[in-house]
Design a protein around this nucleic acid. Structure first.
Length: 546
RNA sequence: GGCCAGUUGGUGAAGUGGCUUAACACACUGCCCUUUCACGGCAGCAUUCAUGGAUUCGAAUUCCAUACUGGUCACCA
């Protein structure tokens, strides 16, 4: 009996050959240098920061070479899948404007893109390995394997199914048939030809050249449920989908020798590999991989709630991906991160630590460069979900709100007040009567109530004028001088003893009387937007209170 | 425990044998500008690249040990 007979015995219903599949999924006609990449998550839940970054990388490389970006769902572990997992992942990624050329929902010519729907393909490829003697059925039970492990531990030998421990390796056709007739459960294992004492040399796009011991383990290629584990599916899928660049988590690197043996057993052309370091986080003293369970900041919802723009998150990812991006972007702030040429070898070899401060800074700069209309629209979107009252308010006062957001904005050096959309309300509340109800006035140098009233009354009677900024400020100077304050800061600094205070103190009184805050953006703009009536109203109310 | 990788200021990092008296950015501090704040400008912030040896005229960069950190050793991905 030959290997071919064994293959037919194990896979009697598999009729297609691997050559048939080569024809169904022909090589892509691509220009030199074009990247076909993929993101291959398990449908275990919503996308979190780690995933988002892991998918950002292949997407960027595919886009910048006019290539193809594939989303493939690795659901071969039925235990971990959750309902709607696929839709959620796709929604989350599209939400970040990732362009996904081929995916389970929109399809593509190289599908199916869900691994459990590819069973018959895997069977054909497994059957092929059996037929050339590179795979065999194994009937060992879980108990057998546990015993094997304890024996190996006791003898201080390497753990695994290899060499003399690979009991089912040399089963005869008749023995296999007897097991099958008996209805015994089995898996298909690779018949490894590796030698643990020899090394393979592997070139990783990020880590460079790595030496690893050859694989000599007879790994499972088809589980007893008929579905392959990750490695086998990876080789078949990435080959058939004609992926050129495999980007995946760094933790796969130790199984590379096994993967290489599979690629070679099929005699497929290997893609290039880039093992990404996972996003890390500092947990007390230790640094560890960011975790969906332990870290609230791992969830993308954390950033949505805070109103951090998605674009800012992508800019942050871009700086993590290639640290020289940051410098380039400083010179090219009008451009998109898409215009930068990213490279694999610029990627960090140690896990990037997720830095919220840095993200917020990037976000602050990003928001400062938007137009008032863009900020308004984004603020509207954010508040619609997270602050309904504020949403209704800015809808009601649309143009007014835009003007507020525009204070010191569209200029060469715009203000950088907001690092997220959730910051805005607290900084502009005094512009809305509905929100303005101060219980604390941040008076500065001048705290005497009579003096405050004197300044305010004289200002409103004689000096109020917002026709243009020079006149406005000049009047405040005149007011200051009339009351014995220095109208010019230099004069005051040179001879402070000659004055009760300076124009700065007088301005502060006006500022606090109108907004209750000692720190605000340009007071002239604020007063113009509020208008004389509301200013008078606030001042009168203040007089009664103090 | 075996195997693999990493270790540069408070943080992210640049750096691939002489251009480094270690870039850039974040954070922080001080000064200047200034009606407040923010912006902006200037300055400060690692005599040192985990430790110890070796190679070299010369090392953060090469080699060897040690330490520490992370990853991995499944019919999980």
């Amino acid at each position: 009996m030959t290997n071919k007979d064994l293959a037919d015995l194990l896979f009697p219903n598999v009729t297609k050959t691997i050559e048939d599949y080569e024809k169904i999924y022909p090589e892509r006609q691509l220009k030199e240098g074009t990247i076909v990449s993929r993101f291959a998550p398990s449908p275990t839940g919503r996308v979190h920061m780690g995933n988002l970054f892991a998918s950002f990388v292949p997407e960027v490389f595919a886009r910048q070479t006019d290539g193809v970006f594939i989303l493939r769902i690795e659901d071969t572990d039925a235990k971990r899948a959750i309902e709607n997992g696929i839709e959620l992942i796709l929604d989350d990624l599209k939400n970040y404007n990732y362009k996904i050329d081929e995916n389970p929902i929109d399809g593509g010519n190289y599908g199916p893109y869900i691994q459990t729907e590819r069973k018959e393909i895997y069977d054909a490829f497994a059957k092929y390995l059996v037929s050339i003697g590179r795979a065999y059925p194994c009937f060992c039970s879980e108990e057998d394997l546990t015993n094997m492990r304890s024996e190996q531990e006791a003898k201080k030998e390497r753990i695994g199914y290899y060499g003399k421990y690979a009991k089912c390796r040399n089963l005869t056709y008749e023995e296999v048939k007897a097991h099958l007739d008996n209805g015994d459960k089995y898996v298909i294992r690779l018949r490894s030809q590796g030698d643990f004492n020899k090394k393979i040399i592997f070139k990783d796009l990020i880590k460079g050249t790595i030496e690893l011991p050859e694989n000599d383990l007879d790994q499972v290629i088809i589980k007893s449920d008929g579905i392959p584990p990750y490695a086998f599916a990876h080789v078949v899928d990435d080959h058939l989908m004609r992926v050129t660049h495999v980007t995946r988590d760094d933790s796969y690197i130790s199984s590379v020798p096994y993967h290489m043996e599979l690629w070679e057993a099929f005699n497929f052309k290997k893609p290039k590999f880039a093992h990404l370091l996972p996003l890390c986080i500092k947990d007390g003293e230790t640094v560890r991989k960011i975790s969906k369970r332990k870290d609230p900041e791992a969830a993308v919802s954390f950033y949505h709630e805070r109103g951090i723009p998605k674009e800012a998150i992508k800019l942050y990812f871009a700086t993590l991906l290639n640290s020289n991006f940051e410098e380039w972007y400083l010179q090219n702030q009008d451009k998109s991160y898409r215009d930068f040429t990213f490279t694999f070898n610029k990627m960090s070899k140690s896990g990037p630590l997720f830095d919220l401060d840095k993200l917020l800074n990037i976000s602050r700069n990003y928001i400062s460069r938007l137009t008032k209309d863009e900020v308004y629209d984004d603020l509207l979107t954010w508040s619609n979900t997270y602050d309904k009252d504020f949403y209704n308010l800015i809808i009601k006062y649309k143009e007014y709100t835009k003007n507020i957001l525009n204070i010191e904005r569209q200029q060469k050096k715009p203000r950088k007040d907001y690092s997220s959309y959730s910051d805005i309300k607290d900084q502009v509340f005094y512009m809305y009567d509905e929100l303005y109800n101060p219980d604390n006035y941040e008076w500065g140098q001048i705290t005497d109530k009579k003096e405050i009233n004197t300044i305010l009354n004289l200002y409103m009677e004689k000096y109020y004028d917002v026709s243009d900024k020079d006149t406005w400020f000049n009047n405040i100077k005149l007011l200051s001088e009339e009351l014995g304050y220095a109208g010019n800061m230099k004069d005051y600094k040179n001879n402070p003893e000659n004055y009760k205070g300076s124009v700065a103190d007088v301005s502060t009184v006006l500022r606090v009387a109108i907004t209750s805050k000692s720190m605000t953006p340009d007071l002239y703009e604020i007063m113009r937007l509020l208008g004389k009536d509301r200013i008078e109203e606030r001042i009168k109310k203040l007089e009664k209170e103090i």
